[in-house]
Design a protein around this nucleic acid. Structure first.
Lengths: 203, 203, 203, 203
DNA sequence: TATGAATGAGCATTCATTCAT
DNA sequence: TATGAATGAATGCTCATTCAT
């Protein structure tokens, strides 16, 4: 196994991640418009030109930074989906996973919002592929399947599972955003509980 | 009665509104970053300099455009709040009002999102007042009061009404956004019905 | 004599002078760059467009305003030149006239300076004729003649009278500028006396 | 010793001076209002954006350009002040230094005048420090001290030394300006001689 | 590979000038 | 004659991107 090559790849990957993380921090602090290449380079402790060795353009960098961060939370959610759990417990676990992630990654949300809602301000038009959105859609699809199963099993009244999935997702986001502004947010578990009750307590 | 003066005011107001509407369309089409003064002027069919006769700056224009659009929907929602209606019907009416507004103002949402989530990219820092956000908060407060009453009256399980209000609001937004992308969205009434059931069917 | 015509001319002239005076005040207060057409129109209490009924362009307006103000002081100096006076007394009278004019027209100097030193910022290139400079040159010429006579008569050492005239003129300006910044400038007579002594006391 | 660092500093300083020199030439040719960033960049043979790598703003650039040029002549004058010379010779040497400087820096005067008289058109209000004016005042103060000593020693009649210093300075400027327009100006020495006689020959 | 000086297209904003009323 | 809304060229400035070192 060619160790040199591997070492290079490791370095490459490390740099890439460090820059993406820097971008996330800058967006969190200064907003999307404040996330200039210079600001990101400064935060990452590299020169402006270096960014172009790892990313094609600003849009590409922001895109990938978003992707990376999304991947992190998606991984956790996938883990929950993979567990064998009763429906209500699964919902609660999903909500909890999101709450905990946001609690420990307060920077993340600004980026989330930037990508989710100002997408075309990042990627020129809707020309570029938006893997981030695809990740989001994957999540929604899985949630939809979960809900569809629950409807069939009689755990839920008969609603369009896709729409309920969307409704839930954004509703949870609202709570996440609200938590970010609360001085002392309640325990994540308690919060997950009432949200679950709201959704699952309905017949 | 100074008729001349009135005429001027009418023209002034007309122009102001036309420019605001143009801004909303541009934001809808090109995003916040694409809403340059030139683009807005072109869309409005006036010269760039003319914008500055009616607005102090780009931030002011975007702010006012957002305000104006928000005011339109808030008016409808206020009307619903003012009606004497059973709780469930009121919720349904609120949801319906939002659905109908978005159905007939497809441009609106991009602006809504821009203001709600990228606010600081419009107004430098939080220096400028953000009346739009205040309007939004007014709505949330009224909804909160409505929900608090319902909790007290036993129509709802015991949840934090503020959080439920936020949850509902964003959940509804998700459905609104989804409708925008649907080729043939279902009847607004049907949609309002299941959302209401979801929220109110819980005990 | 066609009275109507005359009346119109009187109004025309009155307006012209009022606008020129407004321009002088604005320059005094805000500097040359701050003397926009709008600012001048506001100060004059007329609409922006009206300025173009009396002047061809901003350059023309500023030019004429300068001319008018220069004419005022030139008139006084001409009167002194016309008097029959011994050399030293004439010099003293000239200095005194300038001191008194500046004392009572504090706005004037800013304009003087603007025209004298930033000429090409008023008139595009040096394309436009500069009557103001001509007025200034007329004054210098007359002073030169006076000095030439004094040299011939032995009242002065043998210097180039043109250069002495320029030297005097700017030297006096320095004193005028300095007076503008003094809280309680000395009597104009006293000032005129030492300046005259300086120039005439030389053999 | 970090040679690399030094090299960078040298380049930095060289560029800075080249741009300042370009600014001086543009002001000399087109006046203050014509000295746009584009014009200065063109004259310097760099792109517009490059100017902002070396100067914070247009005001900063013009300010520093003025400062640099002023420093050059001030250095020469300081050298004269530092010499042990009889009063009259010192005056003559000061006048001569100014004449020679202007003879070899014909562009300078337009800038001098711009800074001296239109200062507030360069720096918004009196917000920015005006080191240039301070340099000028330093010169006037030193000259004032020299003159005060001469009055005490009986070389001059009893005049206010400050005012005489101002008078001299501007008077000399007039001669400098006049020289600029003369096709074949006389020897600088001869000119310095009569000016000195004028000032010192008075008792 | 890493740098950061240089570039220049693009932006918000101002203001002299025009012209329909 | 007087107005001031409309215009758009021009300005100072920013920042994504390139490239010589």
């Amino acid at each position: 196994m060619p160790v040199g090559k591997t070492k290079e790849q490791v370095v490459q990957e490390f740099r890439t991640q460090a820059i993406e993380a820097a971008a996330v921090r800058v967006i969190a602090e200064k907003g999307l418009a404040g996330a200039t290449m210079q600001a990101i380079a400064d935060e990452a402790g590299v020169a402006k030109g270096t960014l172009y060795l790892y990313f094609e353009s600003r849009a590409d960098l922001l895109q990938k930074a978003a992707e990376a961060t999304f991947s992190e939370i998606m991984e956790r959610l996938e883990a929950v989906f993979a567990q064998e759990l009763p429906f209500a417990d699964k919902i609660r676990a999903l909500v909890l996973a999101q709450l905990e992630f946001v609690d420990s990654h307060r920077d993340f949300f600004r980026l989330y919002v930037a990508v989710r809602y100002a997408g075309s301000d990042i990627a020129e038009g809707s020309r570029l592929e938006r893997p981030t959105i695809r990740q989001f859609q994957t999540y929604v699809r899985k949630l939809t399947e979960l809900l569809a199963g629950a409807v069939k099993a009689g755990h839920l009244g008969s609603v369009d599972p896709t729409k309920l999935a969307l409704f839930m997702t954004e509703g949870i986001n609202a709570i996440l955003l609200h938590r970010l502004e609360e001085a002392e947010p309640p325990e994540a578990e308690a919060e997950a509980a009432w949200i679950t009750d709201l959704l699952v307590g309905c017949k």
